[in-house]
Design a binder for these strands. Structure first.
Lengths: 311, 311
DNA sequence: AAATTTCAATAGCTTTTTTCTATCGACTAA
DNA sequence: TTAGTCGATAGAAAAAAGCTATTGAAATTT
C-alpha cells in the first residue's frame, strides 16, 4: 500500500467538485482510468471508502467529506507555500537572523530596525548581540545569517562588505593629565594606562596594536565587558581609552563634564564596520540590500561622524 | 520542472533535523543520492536555494527555514488526516447529514441528539427537516446521508430499517360529535370530515387510505403543513384527524380541554418509523449504531407509547 | 425485450519518476 | 601524500502514474 500523495488529494478535490470521474479527469488533464486508480489508491491508503460510485453524480461518504475538508486545507497550504516562495526569492521576507557586536548594536540597530521594517515589511529580524568571536562561531555554525561587526572578521568561507569607517577618539577623565593638552601626540601616550574591552572584541586588538606602537600600557587586568563599563572605568580615573564615534555621540555627547575627548595629532584613528556572511549562503542581493539600508541609516543619521564606504 | 510533492517536504524536514544528507537519507530509508535529487528538485520547483551545502552541518537558508516551517505544518496536517481516518472508519465521527420528517423531528430529535452526542462525541450532526418527498430526493441526490421518517420510503438503491411503530389516534375538538362516544367504530367515521397533511407526507397516504376504507371524507382543500397546524384546524372544528402518539404526548398531553382523543374500536392504527439510506453508502455498521441509539431513546423515553421493532 | 448509451473499473502497455549503485570532485584530517 | 568524508552526478533498475482499449453494470432508448 502506497503513501498518501498530494496528487491523490488534488484528484479527490476535483472529483468532489465535478461529482463525475470523467469530468474530474478532464479537469486534471488526465484520463479517466488514471483518476479512478488514484482515487482507489487513496481509499486503500486510508482504508476508507470515500466516494459512492454508481449512476448519477458521484457522492462523497461522510468520511469522504471529512477527508476532503482536510485535503483542501492541505492543498491550500501547499499553494500558499508555492506563492510565498515568490516573495522569498527576493530574500527580504521571512526571518533574518542578524548577529551584531555590542559595540555597535545599541547605538545603530534601533535606526536600522526602523529602516528595514519600513523598507521590507515582510522581513522579520531576529537580532542577537555577542562578542565578535562568538558572532564568528555562530555565523560559521549557521546560527546567524549575517553579522554586523567591526572588521576584519577572519574565517574560512566568510565574505564581508565594509560599510563605514568610524573614528575612535581618546577619552579620558576630565581630571586626567592628558585632558588639558590641546593636542595629543604619540609620545604623550607612552606609559599611559589604556583600558580596553576583552580580547573577544576586535576593538581590543586595534587598541592593543596602538599601545604596542606608542608605548602606552594596555591594562590587561581590567578589561571592560561593554563600552559602558569602559566609560565608567575611565570616569573613575583608571586610565584612558579609545571609544568609537557612534558610542560617544549616543552616550557621552559633547556636554559630559566628567569626561574629555582628547584631540589627537596622529592621523585620525578609525575602525571599519561591515557586514559578514557565509560565502555559500547565497542570497547576495538580499544581503546587499541590507547593507544598503544600513549605509542609508548611517548616512542619514551620522553623516558628519563617520565615513561611508563607497562601493 | 515537476510538481511539489509531500515526499520532498518530508525529506527537507529530515534534512533540517539531521543537518546531514547521508543521515537524513538513512532516516528516510533511502540512499543519499535519492535524497540529494529530491532536495534539488524541490529547490528547482520553488526556484529557491533552501540549504547551504558545504562541509560541516548543512544549514538552511532563511528561505529554507520559512519553507520548512510551512512544510512541517503541512506534514502535520497530513499526519492528522491519516490519524483521523482511523476514527472515520468507525463511521461515527465527522459530520453526518441527517434528514428528518417534521412529523418526527421536533418530538424525537432533541433526545436523539443528546444520546448521540453522549455516545459519539466525535460525531457532529447536521440535521435538516423536509417533507418525506423532499427527504427522498435529497437522499438520492446525496444531500443527506440518512433519513429518519415514516416508512415506507420507496426508491431505487434505498435501504431502510424499521425502528418502531407509533399509534395514530383520532383527535377531534371536544365539542365534536365524535368526542363523546365511548368507542368509535369504522361506521362512525363514514362521512366525517378528516383533515390531513399534504400529500408530500407519508402520513397523508395512510390517512387517505383509511378514509377510502371507512367512507370518511378527506378534506383535500385544507391540508395542513405541520402537525401543529393540523391541531389548530381540529381545534377550530374543521374536522377530526389522526395524530401520532409522540406528537400527542409532546404537544397535547392528557389535559388539553379543547381537544379529545377518541378511543377507536378497530385494531389500533399505527405508522412505522425508521431510518433510510442509500444501499451504496457503505457505512452500514455506523447507520446501525445510529438506529440503535434512536431505538434506545425511544425505549427509554416513550416505552409505553410505542412498539419497538425487534431485529 | 433488445439495442444503445453512459460510466467507472480493469487489463496491458508506455512514459515518467524515483531510487539504486558506482563514481567523482572537493575538501579535511592524519 | 593518503585516506576519509561529504554531497553531486551518471546511468541503470524499479516503481509509480499515465494512456488506450475493453469490460461490466446500469440506464435509456428503440
Amino acid at each position: 500500500m502506497s503513501d498518501l500523495t498530494l496528487r491523490q488529494l488534488r484528484y479527490l478535490s476535483a472529483l468532489a467538485d465535478t461529482r463525475h470521474f470523467r469530468k474530474a479527469a478532464e479537469r486534471e488533464g488526465i484520463s479517466q482510468p488514471s483518476l479512478s486508480v488514484q482515487i482507489s489508491n487513496l481509499e486503500e491508503t486510508l482504508a476508507l471508502p470515500l466516494v459512492e460510485r454508481g449512476r448519477g453524480p458521484v457522492t462523497l461518504t461522510p468520511a469522504g467529506r471529512e477527508v476532503l475538508l482536510r485535503a483542501q486545507a492541505i492543498l491550500d497550504d501547499v499553494q500558499r507555500l508555492m506563492d510565498v516562495s515568490t516573495t522569498l526569492k527576493s530574500g527580504l521576507s521571512g526571518t533574518l537572523r542578524l548577529g551584531v557586536s555590542p559595540t555597535l548594536g545599541p547605538y545603530l540597530m534601533p535606526w536600522v530596525v526602523a529602516e528595514l521594517h519600513g523598507a521590507y515589511p515582510d522581513l522579520s529580524l531576529y537580532i542577537r548581540e555577542s562578542t565578535p568571536t562568538d558572532l564568528r562561531h555562530e555565523l560559521e555554525r549557521g546560527g546567524h545569517d549575517i553579522v554586523l561587526t567591526q572588521l576584519p572578521m577572519s574565517g574560512a568561507d566568510l565574505t564581508s562588505r565594509r560599510l563605514f569607517r568610524e573614528p575612535l577618539s581618546l577619552v579620558a577623565a576630565s581630571d586626567h593629565p592628558l585632558a588639558n593638552r590641546t593636542q595629543i601626540t604619540d609620545h604623550d601616550l607612552a606609559g599611559q594606562a589604556i583600558l580596553s574591552l576583552g580580547p573577544a572584541y576586535a576593538l581590543h586588538d586595534q587598541i592593543a596594536a596602538l599601545c604596542a606602537d606608542t608605548g602606552a600600557e594596555l591594562q590587561r587586568d581590567y578589561e571592560g565587558t561593554s563600552l559602558d563599563a569602559l566609560r565608567q572605568m575611565v570616569g573613575m580615573g583608571m586610565g584612558a581609552t579609545f571609544l568609537p564615534a557612534l558610542y560617544i555621540a549616543s552616550e557621552i555627547g559633547k556636554t559630559d563634564p566628567s569626561l574629555t575627548i582628547c584631540p589627537m595629532k596622529r592621523p585620525a584613528l578609525h575602525r571599519s564596520v561591515g557586514l559578514v556572511w557565509r560565502k555559500r549562503s547565497g542570497n547576495l542581493s538580499a544581503f546587499d540590500r541590507i547593507a544598503d539600508a544600513i549605509t542609508r541609516v548611517a548616512k542619514d543619521r551620522f553623516a558628519g561622524l563617520i565615513t561611508i564606504e563607497t562601493r
